[in-house]
Amino acid sequence: MKAMRLRGLVRKEFLQIVRDPSAIAIAFIMPVVLLLLFGYGVSLDAHHVPLAVVVDQPSAQTGDFVGGLEQSPYFAPRRYPDIGAARRALVERQVSGIVWLRGNFARKLLSGDTAPIAVWVDGVDANNARIVQGYLQGMWQTWLQLQADRIGRKLTLPVQVEARIWFNPALRSRDFLVPGLVAVIMTLIGALLTALVVAREWERGTMEALMASPVTMSEILLGKLVPYFIMGMGGMLLSVAMAVWLFGVPLHGSLWLLVLCPALFLLVALGMGLLISTLAKNQFVVAQVAVIVTFLPAFLLSGFIFDINSMPAVIQGLTHVVAARYYVAILQTVFLAGDVWPVVLGNSLALTGMAVLFLGLAWRRSRKRLD
């Protein structure tokens, strides 16, 4: 391997990137679009949930409780005259739940008994139903405690819950989604971009010219790796900057870990892209294979959105061959928890092994021949 030839190949690749705006769009514009889309458009939080409120006998106590619902950012209560009208609204999907304050609500509260409320929740979306139920339970307990404090009476409940939320105390799904999205973006930049570029060279006939030159296959592969590694790291830094400064995602870990660990993952993605490019020489075929083999597993099986522990055992085992699983775990830990070394080191070791595997397979399958 000669340094002069390698430098010439890297320079050629950078010139080709400058002349082809699609590569720059994939590396820098696509991360911005995806981050804006997921950061502002996708949320697992429940805000302004339409809620039917039925009060059989209005009183100061019922008015105080309904007022708390109206002031809450989580609910958008709508008053209904009776439970029948509220049930029809729930069936017609006009509201997501019902809160029913029966006629004996104020009397039981003033007599010292627990004044129960009836809550019905639309369970079609099970995740949203659990969130609404949890919000209502928390608000109900807080309201009961305030009422007990006003009259100087101790609140007695069967179970006293004292919640302490670690790592994401604001309970913002954006803080959880945006770091994981960085892994999906780097998967697309590394695997898709590299595979498309090599396939394009075959289609344009420039790869045959390289094969006829004195350069070795190792020099050709490195000439592809270096420019797109630099572009991938640039896209990663842009994504991290947007996550921290635009979306306000807290960064509790070390900045140097956000350089070293992405470098490992990017080598895995580049290795997968080079390996895919050895299997097909058509851009359309390569793009389809890259999306199915790299993007979809990174999106569905990495823990980016769906909890891996909630998946069936067979699918959980399958996630261990998805490189994005390890990188998502590192990103979410570094951003939200800090430098938790058992998590960082274990997943970094897995990424190192996968980088060696994919780059080694790509090198072994690459030969200076035209068949």
Rank of each mutant, 00 (worst) to 15 (best):
E208L: 14
V184S: 08
W166T: 00
L222C: 05
V182G: 03
M217H: 13
S254K: 07
R200S: 12
T194N: 01
L225F: 11
R172A: 06
V240I: 09
S213P: 08
L192H: 03
W202C: 02
R204I: 06
G232A: 02
L210H: 11
L181R: 03
L193K: 13
S239M: 05
T206E: 07
S218D: 15
P179L: 00
R164C: 12
R164P: 11
G223I: 09
A170E: 14
M236W: 11
F229S: 07
E203H: 11
S239F: 02
P250Y: 01
L257C: 13
F247P: 01
L255D: 09
G180V: 04
T216I: 13
G234H: 05
M211N: 14
R164G: 13
E208K: 14
A195V: 11
P179R: 02
F247S: 02
A191P: 12
F247G: 00
I220T: 10
L193I: 04
G248S: 07
P179C: 00
L222T: 08
L255C: 13
F167L: 01
L251Q: 09
L177M: 04
A191R: 09
L196E: 12
V178F: 00
G253Y: 01
Y228G: 10
L210R: 06
L237A: 14
A199D: 05
L238H: 08
